[in-house]
């Protein structure tokens, strides 16, 4: 089966539909599927729900889909760097489901692993627990959280081979692994597609079974908070 597509639009052909749930990898602007997000914007698909830790910034990442009002709902843990996101949320235009970051990651992992629900201590006694099943284990209270089963997963990796085996780089791995696993279809954009056999099988971060379509492209890889120290401080 051929998994490599020419570009982001070609890879998205036939998989987008209004109202779908998309799981997206990335943390802040690090390791986000920027090419696929741009192509989703151009496709004009609307009423999207996104499970994604953040919503990008106003002009990059998921933020570009907020500008065009293509997003109906976000499932996120942190939206602090996006003014348009806050404006739409506070005015009631955008639905927002706050998930604790680890709960969001585990909901994706669980969905990808065929687990419809799990219990966690995270959020007990907070608004997050409202309306959720509580259950005691060994004298401690836990709440039930549900696995996420997304219609589509979009992720960004460093390298792929043509079978979809993925390798990520440094902290750009983040949500890409759990997000990839929870989609019915997963599309990965990578910096480099390498020949089969050139990735060390012991060092594959995500086996190709989870990846259905692959594109290679050049990435802006924007830095959100450029923080440095002076040489003389060392």
């Amino acid at each position: 089966m051929k998994k490599i597509y020419a570009n982001a639009s070609a890879a998205l052909d036939g998989v987008l539909s209004d109202g779908m749930l998309i799981a997206a990898g990335g943390f802040g602007l690090c390791g986000i599927p920027e090419l696929l997000l741009e192509a989703i914007k151009e496709s004009g698909v609307k009423d999207l729900s996104f499970a994604s830790n953040n919503a990008g910034v106003d002009d990059f990442g998921i933020g570009i889909l907020l500008q065009t009002k293509q997003v109906k709902k976000m499932i996120s843990s942190y939206v602090g760097e996006n003014a348009e996101f806050m404006r739409q949320y506070l005015s009631g235009e955008l639905e927002l489901e706050f998930n604790p970051q680890g709960t969001l990651a585990e909901r994706m992992r669980a969905g990808g692993a065929g687990i419809p629900g799990f219990y966690t201590k995270t959020g007990v006694g907070t608004v997050i627990a409202d309306g959720k099943e509580h259950k005691d284990f060994n004298g401690e209270t836990y709440i039930m959280e549900e696995g996420i089963f997304a219609d589509l997963a979009i992720v960004k990796a460093w390298k792929a081979d043509d079978t979809g085996n993925l390798v990520f780089r440094k902290t750009a791995r983040n949500f890409n692994v759990p997000a990839a696993t929870c989609g019915k279809i997963c599309i990965a954009e990578v910096e480099e597609i390498v020949p089969r056999g050139s990735l060390d099988p012991d060092s594959i971060h995500l086996p190709g079974i989870y990846v259905h379509r692959i594109i290679q492209g050049s990435h802006e890889k924007r830095i959100e908070q450029r923080t440095t120290r002076k040489k003389e401080d060392a």
Binding site: S77, Y78, L90, P100, Q101, G102, T120, T122, G123
Partner: peptide, 14 residues
């Protein structure tokens, strides 16, 4: 202020 809890709820619980 709407920022979100990020990983704070998981951290304090765990």
């Amino acid at each position: 202020l709407v920022k979100g809890m990020g990983g704070a709820m998981d951290l304090v619980a765990g």
